[in-house]
């Protein structure tokens, strides 16, 4: 899958993506850090300072920042991945190369951005006095899980976007809804206090599972996750199953459609 030529091309595409992203802006790459930080500042003031979300939960501010960073990556990877094929239409119409590289390059760019933001999160965690445990080493696995999900969605969305441009608007609405349906700005305990069943359902969303796992591994040991909050192993693995089904489906759909990309764009 990743032959020498494809690796060269991937590297070059990611490099170009990065150069072009902040092309002409004064602060340049600094925006990768600044944007989630400013977003976080707003959320912090609104939800933690005024609405008192997560009151009584240690380091909830760090949890919030971590979750926002993860969500930003997820949004960016799926949205950029969705539009990658159409945006690179000029390449596709002139030369033959594996189309998946374009989608992968868009998601890898988002991943690099995420890595930069993550440094800020970790600095913030240290300042906030978060105690780190050895199980933080499992965090990259969870990030990988999120990456696979984002890639799967990017492949599916990119295949649809070539023929049906409305998906761009639909997806932005879906993501807005999903943002509130995922325990990001509010702690899952807040939902559980009202309805434990609703909390369990929310946790079956793969992104929620990932965010809660990350919080548990990085910020606070006692965070509720799908593994602690749901007892039935058959139900526990639903988020993982969703991701596996998504990536398999995505690869099949993308492969089937990619032959026609050049003439459909």
């Amino acid at each position: 899958m990743f032959g020498r030529q494809n690796r060269i091309l991937l590297k070059e595409l990611v490099k170009t993506d990065f150069k072009l992203r902040y092309n002409g802006s004064v602060l340049g790459m600094f925006w990768s850090v600044l944007r989630p930080l400013l977003l976080f500042a707003i959320m912090y003031v609104v939800f933690i300072h005024f609405l008192k979300f997560g009151a009584g939960i240690p380091h909830f501010a760090v949890s919030l920042l971590l979750a926002i960073t993860l969500w930003s990556f997820f949004t960016e990877a799926t949205t950029q991945g969705m539009m990658a094929i159409v945006n690179r239409g000029d390449l596709i119409r002139k030369i033959n190369f594996p189309k998946y590289i374009i989608v992968v390059s868009a998601t890898v760019s988002a991943l690099i951005n995420f890595g930069i933001s993550l440094i800020v999160v970790m600095l913030f965690a240290v300042l906030n006095g978060v105690e780190f445990h050895l199980h933080i080493l499992l965090a990259p696995l969870v990030v990988l899980e999120l990456y696979v999900l984002a890639l799967a969605l990017a492949f599916l969305l990119a295949s649809i976007y070539v023929r049906f441009r409305d998906i761009e608007h639909i997806w932005s609405v879906v993501m807005q809804g999903a943002f509130y349906a995922t325990p990001i700005i509010y702690p899952i305990t807040m939902v559980a206090a009202v309805s434990p069943v609703a909390a369990k359902v929310l946790l079956l969303n793969p992104v929620a599972q990932i965010i809660q796992d990350m919080r548990q591994l990085v910020v606070l040991d006692t965070t509720d996750t799908v593994w602690t909050y749901i007892n039935n192993p058959a139900i526990q693995i639903i988020p993982i199953v969703i991701i596996i089904v998504a990536i398999v489906l995505a690869v099949i759909v993308f492969n089937k459609n990619s032959k026609k990309f050049a003439e459909s764009i």
Binding site: T16, K19, L20, D90, L91, K94, I95, N96
Partner: peptide, 17 residues
């Protein structure tokens, strides 16, 4: 292949890039 105006040049990049 050399089809139409070159292979996917990007106007925002320099000639070297």
């Amino acid at each position: 292949p050399f089809i139409e105006l070159g292979v996917g040049f990007n106007p925002e990049l320099t000639g070297r890039e």
